[in-house]
């Protein structure tokens, strides 16, 4: 623990604490787990290197998550859009999924995770992918197309306040603010 603390540096540690919702222990733990994913020679420059998505997804906390790839894509700041994460991206991820993150932040990122085509609204395609993600993708577990159509029309009826056929961010946040279970379930703990 002493070595990791010195490696992170007091200043950057306090900066991380200031800009994320994580506590010191959580940041140190995140650092430990992150350096385990890095190659040996990369460990000295923490923020210069990106860990590719495949490696991030070997973390047990993400391995079986149905949204794992979307999560990586949303939090990645990579120019190549390959879902690779720097340490800061990784902290961002943990911060948004932490206990103390606000509903605002959580719903914002949930929206971006659910927005599969990154166009800023949840349209029918996004909703269908979302439901498929949650119910399993194989043919025998999927809902029938009739059920899917019905479900999506239900969803839109509930949340599409301005009736434009898509759910935008503020509509989504409106719905989220009415589902009390969301905050406690939108959580990943290392």
């Amino acid at each position: 623990m002493g070595t990791t603390a010195s490696q992170l540096g007091k200043d950057s540690l306090s900066e991380y604490q200031e800009l994320t919702f994580l506590t010191k222990q959580e940041i140190l733990l995140a650092h430990k787990r992150f350096t385990e994913l890095q190659n040996r020679d990369e460990r000295n420059h923490l923020n210069a290197t990106r860990v590719p998505m495949e490696k991030i997804l070997t973390l047990p906390e993400l391995k079986s998550n149905p949204f794992r790839k979307r999560i990586c894509h949303v939090f990645s700041t990579s120019e190549a859009k390959d879902g690779s994460l720097t340490f800061e991206d990784f902290l961002d991820l943990l911060s948004a999924f932490s206990d103390s993150a606000t509903l605002e932040i959580k719903s914002h990122y949930a929206f971006r995770i659910f927005d599969f085509d990154d166009d800023g609204t949840l349209d029918c395609g996004d909703l269908e992918k979302l439901v498929n993600c949650l119910t399993g993708e194989t043919d025998d577990t999927r809902l029938t197309s009739e059920e899917m159509r019905q479900l999506i029309s239900n969803i839109l009826e509930e949340s599409d306040i301005d009736k434009d056929g898509t759910v935008n961010l503020s509509e989504f946040q409106h719905v989220i603010s009415r589902s009390p279970d969301f905050v406690s379930s939108f959580k990943i703990v290392l």
Binding site: K63, P66, L134, I155, K187
Partner: peptide
């Protein structure tokens, strides 16, 4: 809020593969 409540209650913290499948 029926459908959304179901969709939003997905527990991201569950790490067990079998549990994830059962939940699905």
């Amino acid at each position: 809020n029926n459908a959304w409540q179901l969709l939003c209650s997905w527990d991201f913290s569950i790490t067990n593969e079998r549990a994830v499948n059962q939940r699905k």
